[in-house]
Simulated assay, not measured.
Amino acid sequence: MGRRDYENDPQAPQANSLVPAASVVVVDDTGRILLQRRVDNGMWALPGGAMNIGESLPECAVREAREETGIDVEVVGIVGTYSNPRHVFAYDDGEVRQEFSICFLARPVGGQPAVSDESTEVRWFDPSAVADLPMVSGVRKRVDDWRSGAMPALG
Rank of each mutant, 00 (worst) to 15 (best):
T30S: 14
P58M: 06
L105Q: 13
V62W: 00
D9K: 05
W124I: 04
V130N: 06
D92T: 04
I71E: 05
D145G: 01
E118P: 03
Y82Q: 05
G42F: 12
D92H: 07
S56R: 09
V19E: 12
I53S: 14
G77L: 05
A150G: 09
D29Y: 06
M1F: 13
A21W: 00
P152G: 04
P47M: 03
D72S: 13
G49E: 09
G48Y: 04
I102E: 04
F89N: 06
R86T: 07
M51A: 14
N52Y: 07
F89W: 08
A114R: 09
V27E: 14
D145S: 05
L34S: 02
G110L: 06
G42A: 12
N41G: 08
T81G: 15
Q98P: 01
E55I: 07
I102P: 00
E64G: 02
V115D: 04
S101V: 13
V122K: 09
P20V: 05
S137W: 06
V24C: 11
G2W: 13
A50F: 02
D92Q: 12
E59H: 10
S101G: 07
K141W: 12
S119T: 15
L133W: 13
V24T: 14
G70D: 06
A131K: 05
P113T: 05
G94T: 10
T120C: 09
G42L: 11
Q112G: 08
V62T: 13
G31N: 08
A106Y: 03
E7C: 07
S137P: 02
T120Y: 06
D9T: 07
